[in-house]
Write a protein that binds this DNA or RNA. Structure first.
Lengths: 342, 342
DNA sequence: TTTAGCACTCAACGTGTGAGAGTGCTAACA
DNA sequence: TGTTAGCACTCTCACACGTTGAGTGCTAAA
């Protein structure tokens, strides 16, 4: 049994209708609503075929058909071959972005909010974990005799501020000098590289400052190692209540609880390294909790390093067409800003 | 009609039972469950009185009674006169706190998570808005030719990182020197005081650095002024689903949407300036959306300035006794850390 | 003043029924 | 041989209806 053109037409119509209505699609409705030029009975036969091929399922004996993940995948692949054009002419949106200067995290935050608003889905923005980043600037602030706050700016504009302890305490002036020294040595390196540097180089020298640095850096690295905080920014989390499939408190709770598993979500999204838009549908994800969700992710880069991701998450019955259009639109503005301002 | 001792006993029993069961309390149940030494009929009479006095309401003619805000208030006042003792002997909790060194924001975050876990309610932690804080340290980082990232540490340990634009650009070395100068001038002042200083003092001097500072500071202040971001940390947001009154999707959504109105919540909580625990019940709040919620808030201070608040929010039918005990416990640990480490 | 008794009210629950949408199968048709 | 009309059957959903049970208010007796 192959996929005739007619089968595909029917399949796409079913997917489209189900996305729109969230109701199982029947042959009669289909033949009335979309004029496919064939009767309900014929459609029924084709539907039986499509079910056998794994594109459709039936919730109970005499109900209509519901698209499977495979059906959504076929549908998405299909619409991706169509209209590639992006409307970047939305001048209101464009200027609202242009006026948003700020830290990259803020840009991500803003994009995520806008995207949640225009799509009516939940969005997630995130930036790479500090382990993946290069130091751009480091600064120490004494907050008490033995406690030091380090402020680290990475090349991707992310700021982290670990606090660590230095036994015996340290003078403010010295701390300032050490921070200058470390800036000189560490800038441009990743966390791992700093660790190596520490072993190789600093051990051999022995100025007063470097002795102190030798005390501070391991503490700092140890603290950074412990940071398991993933910087996820959610927007439109309550949008999930708009979908009938989440009209059930149990499912709504499951969705919101899933969002709290930050590491899993980070792993899920940060695996994407793609210049365009990446789409994963239901069971295509390994993460059990999102098996009835789809994720559409855009990756943002400057030169070659990733500075963040922006994801739309929603039921597999997602308005792919609209969401893809919106995320492309937002991506254009974000990339523009990244190119010109950073 | 006065509040006899017996009336109070009945009232407290009703409140207690309703908190436990979330079901309207009837006279029969009450007389069976709590042995008050009087019959259901007598209780009925007293209940009618209590309703007239505004302590009880009836959802429909032949249902049991439900406590009003006034009843909860009476009950809370009553339990506050009882057991003031706090168990600070929970050594596991104590040591888990002690091991948490870090920025104040992190301490608040951690406390909020712990409190949500032990109470099973939603908690909110927040720190004062930057306008209220004094500068402790300021540092500039160039992120592109015209864009500068300022990193501000306040006396309460909060870090903010506004990005602003400086037309014409600026050299890294100069920027470093300006930052040293500003540190010297601004430390210990509030945002408003810096503004005044700028007008009064810097105008008269005219060194190269100060000319530059004169260019930078207004930009910085303008950017800070625009920060309307309130730093609220939520934990246990999905706990709301555990309560039968939020088994309705509409109400659950309303609650979660309410949490997104950050400024309103900030205003609500930051109004509390209290050494102990502050409790507000239902309509006692001006904020319409929380009229069927209660908030229990602890304020944290170092010396005299407030460094943060920790709030438990839940239905007015809250386990006040348990929550008050828990928040007191956590407060002791947090205050301990604040006293000894900051 | 307290209590027992009684008639009344109302939500909640289970049952039954009919409407409606949909299916699969069969037989006729182009 | 593929397509269509017709038909019997299935299953959910919505609605009406009666029953149950908890609770009330009132009255009269202790």
């Amino acid at each position: 049994m192959e996929m005739h053109d007619r089968k595909l037409k029917i399949l796409y119509a079913i997917v489209k209708d189900y996305i729109e209505t969230a109701d199982a699609v029947g042959s009669r409705t289909l033949s009335k609503k979309y004029n496919l030029g064939i009767s309900a009975a014929t459609i029924r036969n084709e539907m039986a075929d499509l079910e056998e091929l794994g594109y459709l399922t039936q919730p109970y004996t005499s109900a209509g058909r519901i698209p499977s993940d495979r059906a959504y995948r076929a549908y998405v692949n299909y619409i991706m071959t169509l209209k590639k054009k992006v409307h970047t002419q939305d001048s209101e949106l464009k200027s609202s972005f242009a006026s948003k200067v700020g830290e990259i995290r803020e840009l991500l935050h803003y994009s995520s909010r806008i995207l949640a608003e225009i799509t009516d889905y939940t969005t997630i923005a995130l930036s790479p974990h500090i382990e993946e980043c290069r130091f751009k600037n480091i600064q120490f602030v004494r907050i008490s005799s033995e406690m030091i706050l380090a402020i680290i700016v990475t090349d991707t504009g992310v700021v982290r501020k670990p606090v660590f302890k230095i036994s015996g305490g340290i003078d403010s002036d010295i701390l300032q000098k050490v921070s200058n020294l470390l800036n000189y040595k560490m800038v441009g390196l990743t966390l791992r590289e700093v660790e190596q540097l520490l072993v190789q180089e600093i051990k051999h020298e022995a100025s007063v400052l470097e002795n102190i640095a030798r005390k501070i850096v391991p503490e700092l690295l140890k603290t950074l190692d412990k940071i398991e905080e993933y910087d996820l920014i959610f927007s439109g989390t309550t949008n999930i209540f708009n979908f009938p499939e989440y009209n059930d408190v149990v499912r709504a709770k499951a969705f919101l609880t899933m969002l709290e598993k930050k590491q899993a979500i980070y792993d899920l999204i940060a695996a994407v390294n793609n210049d365009g838009i990446s789409i994963s549908i239901g069971g295509e994800n390994d993460f059990e909790e999102v098996k009835d969700c789809s994720l559409i992710t855009a990756t943002f880069k400057t030169d070659d390093s990733i500075v963040g991701w922006l994801t739309v998450i929603g039921p597999t019955r997602m308005e792919y067409s609209k969401v893809i259009r919106s995320i492309r639109q937002v991506s254009v503005f974000v990339n523009d800003l990244l190119k010109h301002k950073y």
